[in-house]
Design a protein around this nucleic acid. Structure first.
Lengths: 245, 245
DNA sequence: CCCAAACTGTTTACGTCATCAGCAGTTGCT
DNA sequence: AGCAACTGCTGATGACGTAAACAGTTTGGG
């Protein structure tokens, strides 16, 4: 079983890096993993990740579900290809000018942009096994390049990267599953229940009265909440840099 | 459809708060939503969230899948109940002593502990619609209580909470899907490919050589990586507090 | 006191999904 | 020419969530 896993992994990595030998015999393949992934991405963009089934992707090419298995080992690998497809162009941080901080902010903005353009990306990267293809590594490369001048150790740089990337994820998560009507409805119902249990939740009641969850502030789009978290994090990182070890 | 949604939501909220009128007629119910949720939690703890199906949970009580629908509107609501069940006891931050920072760290530790005890919690809260029951609100209450003395505005406190809670999530995510053998295998394969494309990934190659991804540092358990991120974040928050607005 | 209403849990069925096994047709190397 | 390698297909399997209809049980209203 360990061997099976290893072979699966090897095949998956080869697929991600596009390093597989093309066969010469037999009918010409009508598809490629790349085109399949693109179709799946289009489908996910339009109808969500749940709508991405082998049948539906196949139908996009007028082909049965099983035909896809000639190009892709299984659905998990297809999702990995989708992620790679969407991360194709690594961010260009040079436009942000010099300075690790400006460039890191730019990296976060680019990441946010991709996630907002493809909301299923969050779920896709959450479910996947830890496998990074070349495009994903390109994003990591860009971030590490931005962090290089900080003088932090390699391990620290990596940790800062994880911190920032994780923050973008949670930030986008909130953007994505924010639903105006749903949220307001829940707010009303909960406010009522909260009032009935005010003694159990004094701080919460106070915050509610102070408007901490008022629509303007609850709507994550307002006031650029990416900046708030990012500024806190990068302030903290700056302190670490200044401290000099 | 809006009406349907609203009714669903109302029912869901009532379920979470345990505010539903018990019927008098008919056979005595043999189950309760709470007991069902507990069984589902046990199942998820043992075999993962994917193993939680209506059949299997029903089987835990020697009952068919459909029987559960007498207690729970559907699977989504069952998952919500599972989350509530696991968050039953809100964290006690007073043991950490005084000071917003110590208490916030303690909150994060408690949250980490729960997530590690129930690894499926991440996936469960990721998939759910934004619905918080009383126990989840209890955790929020605890955090806001800790943050109250900071002098930050209610909206800022809320944002700091989101920041910290999100960080714990991503941190635990890493802990959870870290797999020794899998990770090493991927590392080997990727290192090989990386070497072959070293010119495309100079920073990455340098970081690799500097040991940024060496097992000791790659293993997120080592060196308390919760502290690293949390310290950066809270340093940044401290600056915000000092700045006085 | 009795019966209809309310409630329980069951079986059956439907549609969807990923994936396995086997088949028929196509291509190109030897 | 013939065989091996390859394509895409059909059909089947077992899992899932849940809708519908039904049989059995309890109890309040008459």
């Amino acid at each position: 079983m360990a061997k099976e896993k290893a072979r699966d992994l090897r095949a998956g990595v080869a697929l991600l890096w596009g390093e597989q030998d093309r066969p010469t015999r037999g009918p010409k393949p009508s598809l490629t993993p790349g085109r399949i992934a693109e179709a799946a991405v289009a489908l996910a963009d339009a109808e969500g990740l749940d709508a991405v089934s082998m049948s539906k992707v196949g139908a996009e090419f007028g082909v049965s579900a099983m035909a896809l298995y000639r190009y892709v080992p299984g659905k998990a690998e297809l999702v990995e290809l989708m992620v790679e497809s969407v991360l194709a162009e690594a961010p260009d941080l040079s436009t942000a000018g010099p300075g690790w901080r400006r460039q890191t902010v730019e990296w976060a903005r680019c990441s946010e942009r991709v996630h907002r353009a493809h909301p299923w990306l969050l779920a896709a990267t959450a479910m996947r096994r830890q496998l990074m293809g070349p495009h994903q590594l390109g994003w990591l490369e860009a971030a590490l390049t931005a962090l290089a001048p900080t003088g932090l150790t390699a391990a620290q740089q990596h940790r800062v990267f994880v911190l920032v990337a994780g923050f973008v994820r949670t930030h986008v998560q909130q953007l994505v599953d924010f639903d105006e009507e749903h949220s307001r409805e829940w707010g009303l119902l909960t406010a009522e229940l909260l009032a009935r249990h005010a003694e159990r939740f004094p701080a919460l009641t106070a915050a509610l009265e102070a408007g901490a969850f008022a629509p303007e502030t609850a709507d994550p789009d307002a006031a650029d909440s990416l900046r708030f978290g990012l500024d806190r994090i990068l302030d903290g990182v700056q302190l670490l840099i200044d401290r000099g070890h």
